[in-house]
């Protein structure tokens, strides 16, 4: 155990890289989600079609296959060699963005049609209708889904260790190889991820209450251990 203390700074470095993957990945995933989600709602098949293919391809194959493809195929087949961190952030944001795009699409689509009718009656252009009416109204409905995607992003960031990003999981396996303290290292790693998930989940709970449309529509007060919802990603 005492030998593990000296590895603490290394573990902290790994934690920072994991948090960087999480923050940059989430920011880009949000951009991907709105771009692809809104494109899916377009009237033009030429915009709708590619967005559909993008979403289905990224949701239909494993994230680890996507990581390996970018990491191994791009350099050998096309001569494009990206730094590992970039590979990680790119795939995390495209993959999670594809899941979040469906959340964006279904949240906007489930707004009552009367909202659209009212906008037309007021002579608002489609762009203004989307930006000032439909999207703001849909945010509360998107937040629980986004929370699930965020926690998935954190968990999937562990897979970036396989493409040589020196993040938390990678650091843990290095420490394990050097010290042989298998049980302690991996249990500690699980606890760190669990604490991060709980913190993310609590943060999303705060956001959900903050953005609730009306006080009566507020989500129920949740206990610490019922924080995660059964979001299924297909």
């Amino acid at each position: 155990m005492s030998t593990l203390i000296e590895y603490l700074p290394l573990l902290l470095d790994g934690l920072i890289v994991t948090l960087e993957l999480l923050v940059v990945g989430a920011a880009l995933a949000l951009v991907v989600a709105f771009t692809a989600g809104l494109a899916r709602l377009s009237r033009h098949a030429l915009i709708r079609g590619p967005a559909y293919v993008f979403i289905e391809v990224f949701r239909g194959t494993s994230i680890i296959v996507q990581l390996f493809w970018v990491f191994f195929v791009l350099p050998t087949a096309l001569g494009i060699e990206l730094p590992p961190f970039l590979v990680g952030v790119l795939i995390l944001s495209l993959n999670e963005g594809a899941y979040a795009a469906e959340i964006v699409r279904s949240a906007i689509k489930s707004r009552p049609v009367t909202q659209t009718e009212a906008c037309i009656a007021l002579g608002l252009r489609p762009f203004t209708r989307m930006r000032r009416v439909l999207i703001p109204q849909s945010i509360p409905a998107m937040l629980p889904g986004f929370g699930n995607v965020l926690i998935d992003l954190l968990k999937n960031s562990a897979l970036c260790s396989t493409v040589t990003v020196i993040e938390l999981t990678r650091v843990a396996t290095i420490i394990r190889d050097n010290t042989g303290e298998t049980t302690t290292v991996f249990l500690m790693l699980l606890v760190v991820y669990f604490v991060l998930s709980v913190l993310l989940s609590m943060g999303m709970g705060v956001l959900e209450r903050r953005f609730a449309i009306s006080p009566t529509a507020r989500p129920q007060k949740r206990q610490l251990f019922t924080l995660f919802r059964g979001g299924v990603r297909v």
């Binding site: 926690i151 954190l154 968990k155 999981t169 669990f194 251990f225």
Partner: peptide, 9 residues
């Protein structure tokens, strides 16, 4: 909660 809060890998 613990299983759902930690990565499968």
């Amino acid at each position: 909660q613990f299983i759902r809060g930690t990565p499968l890998v």
